[in-house]
Simulated assay, not measured.
Amino acid sequence: MRAALFVTCVNDAVYPATGIATVRLLERLGVDVDFPEAQTCCGQPQFNTGYRRETEPLVRRMTRAFEGYDYVVTPSGSCAAMVRHHYPKIGDEAAASLAARTYELTEFLVDVVGVTDVGAHFPHTVTYHPSCHGLRLLGLGERPRKLLESVRGLELRELPGADECCGFGGTFAVKNSDVSAAMGQDKVSNAVSTGAEVLCGADNSCLMHIGGIVSREGAPLRPVHLAEILASTEEEPWS
């Protein structure tokens, strides 16, 4: 099975360990992973801010970059949702084709590769935050939890108010910073109340927002992307 990695801007620029973990994980499961270097921003920030015309060249570039791949996999629910839900409205038939071939990582693992036990080992207490795009637009449901529940050594703790937004929301965090920060503080308080060492999520944009609050408050919690947990093994542990 051959797939292309859509790494996303946030991961490429700020969280490269998530992209590396995704490749390690997929290759361990027998997936042949390519990285099309022509990929750039998917256009989500522009589109969400109302700049549809400026989004169109990015849609065309992404469509060309991932042409010829049966599967395009991304460790980001928000970027997957952009491609899946908005590309068909913005672009042509090629953009609609890319939308149909694009999968968020946990979808790809469970629905395409057909696994929930990926051979991971992560001896830590973890609570899981389902980001809004994955929860509502993609309908990821129990896929991330099933993957986490199969990780050896991992103790999964229920997050109070798990379905509530963390407050990031892309440009929402800039335009409504006070509300955004208050929502983030609620999310961090709920996560800390579980006593977990790690707050896991499938979107580094949300984890970046939460992580900023964790850092300012000195909370005893470490945000970690789901891909990094699933890539961790006894032989190659997460650090």
Rank of each mutant, 00 (worst) to 15 (best):
K187G: 02
S150A: 15
V224A: 05
C132M: 05
D203K: 02
R157S: 04
H209I: 11
G134M: 02
T194R: 01
R216H: 13
V151A: 08
P160V: 04
E149C: 09
F172W: 14
F172R: 05
H124Q: 14
D186P: 00
G169M: 02
C132G: 07
K175S: 13
R145N: 03
A181C: 05
L140D: 00
E197C: 02
D117E: 13
D117S: 12
D117V: 11
L221N: 01
L148H: 02
G211T: 04
V151T: 14
F172T: 07
K175V: 11
S193I: 06
A120T: 10
A219Y: 03
E158S: 12
C132K: 02
V179Q: 13
S205E: 09
D178E: 15
P144S: 09
V192S: 06
R222F: 01
H121Q: 09
D117H: 12
S177V: 14
G218K: 11
H124K: 15
A191W: 01
F172D: 03
F122I: 13
G134K: 01
H129V: 06
R222E: 15
K187V: 08
L226F: 02
V118D: 08
E155I: 05
K175Y: 11
S180L: 07
R136M: 12
E149T: 11
L138H: 00
C165F: 09
V192G: 00
V126A: 10
G141L: 07
G170S: 08
R143P: 01
L207V: 09
S189V: 09
M183A: 05
E155L: 04
H124F: 13
R152M: 05
E197V: 02
G218Y: 12
R222I: 04
G212P: 06
H133T: 09
H121L: 05
E142C: 01
T171V: 13
E158C: 05
R145V: 14
V214R: 03
A196S: 14
G201P: 00
D178N: 13
R136F: 07
E142G: 00
R136L: 12
D117W: 07
P220V: 10
V179E: 14
V118I: 11
P220I: 12
S150W: 00
A202G: 12
L156Q: 08
V151N: 07
H129Y: 14
K187W: 05
S189F: 03
T127H: 03
T171Y: 04
K175R: 15
T125N: 09
A202C: 12
P123E: 13
V174C: 11
E164Y: 09
L156K: 10
S150H: 11
A182I: 11
K146G: 02
